[in-house]
Design a protein around this nucleic acid. Structure first.
Lengths: 112, 112
DNA sequence: CACTATGCGTAGCATTACTACTTATAGAAC
DNA sequence: GTTCTATAAGTAGTAATGCTACGCATAGTG
C-alpha cells in the first residue's frame, strides 16, 4: 500500500510505534511493517524528516547511541507525545467513522 | 471536524455524493454534511476546485442550468467515475484497516 | 436598504509525503 | 580485495491537495 494518502495521519503512526518503548528510525519502519502485515512500507525519506518534526514539536526526544559500530538515534515519547497520541487515536476513530459513513452509510464495517 | 486530514480521500467522498444522482456543488456540501451527521463541513474553496479536477479527469460531467434565477452546475458520475468510486471504496477499506491495525493492533474496532 | 441564504469561482498559501540522492559501517559472497 | 546486501541516518527538491480569504451574483425577508 502506498502511503500517499497518509497525509495527516503519519504522526499518529509514528507515536504509536514508540508507545512500547524507545526505537530508532529504522526500527520504526520495521515495527510499522510488522504491525500492518507488510501493508505499510514507509520510505526513509518519509520517516526521518517526520521524526525530526515530532522532536521539534516536543512530542518525542531523541538521543544518539552507537550499536555495532553504527550510530543510531533512539526516540522516545514525551508526556506531551503520549497525550498527543491519545488525542490522535480518538481523532482517527472520529475521522474513520465519518469517512466510512459518507462512503458507505455505516460507521464501520464489521469483519465477517 | 476539520477536513485537513482528508488529503487523498476527498475525491471518493465527492464521487459517493453523486452516486444517487446528479447534484450541484452546493448540494454536494449539504449531502455530505447530512451523511455524516454534521461532522463534515466542506468549505466551498475545497469542493469547487475538486469538482473541476474530477471533471477534467473524466470521472464526472457537468452541465449548467438555471433554477430560480440562479445558475447551477450539475455534476453526474461517468461510467469511469463509477468504476473509480468502487476502487476508491475498497482502497479506503484497506487504508482504514491498515491504519487501525497500526494504531490499535486490530483491523477495525467493533461497535459495542 | 441591509442582511441572509443560495450559488460559483479564483489566487495564493501551507502542509506534508515522495523521489532520488548522499554518507557510513559490517558482514557475506566471490 | 572488491562487490553486494543489510543496517542506519539524512537532505534537497518536487508535487499534490485542501484551506483561507476573497469576489461576483440573485432572491427573499426584515
Amino acid at each position: 500500500m502506498r502511503a500517499e494518502e497518509l497525509k495527516g495521519h503519519l504522526d499518529a503512526l509514528l507515536l504509536a510505534a514508540l508507545e512500547d518503548g524507545p526505537r530508532h528510525g529504522y526500527a520504526v519502519i520495521e515495527a510499522l511493517r510488522q504491525a500492518t502485515g507488510g501493508r505499510l512500507e514507509l520510505p526513509t525519506g518519509t520517516i526521518y524528516p517526520a521524526l525530526r518534526r515530532l522532536e521539534q514539536a516536543g512530542l518525542i526526544t531523541g538521543s544518539w547511541s552507537v550499536v555495532a559500530g553504527r550510530r543510531r538515534r533512539d526516540y522516545q515519547l514525551t508526556p506531551g507525545g503520549a497525550r498527543a497520541l491519545s488525542g490522535k487515536r480518538s481523532a482517527w476513530r472520529d475521522f474513520s467513522a465519518t469517512i466510512s459513513a459518507a462512503l458507505e452509510g455505516r460507521p464501520c464495517p464489521e469483519p465477517a
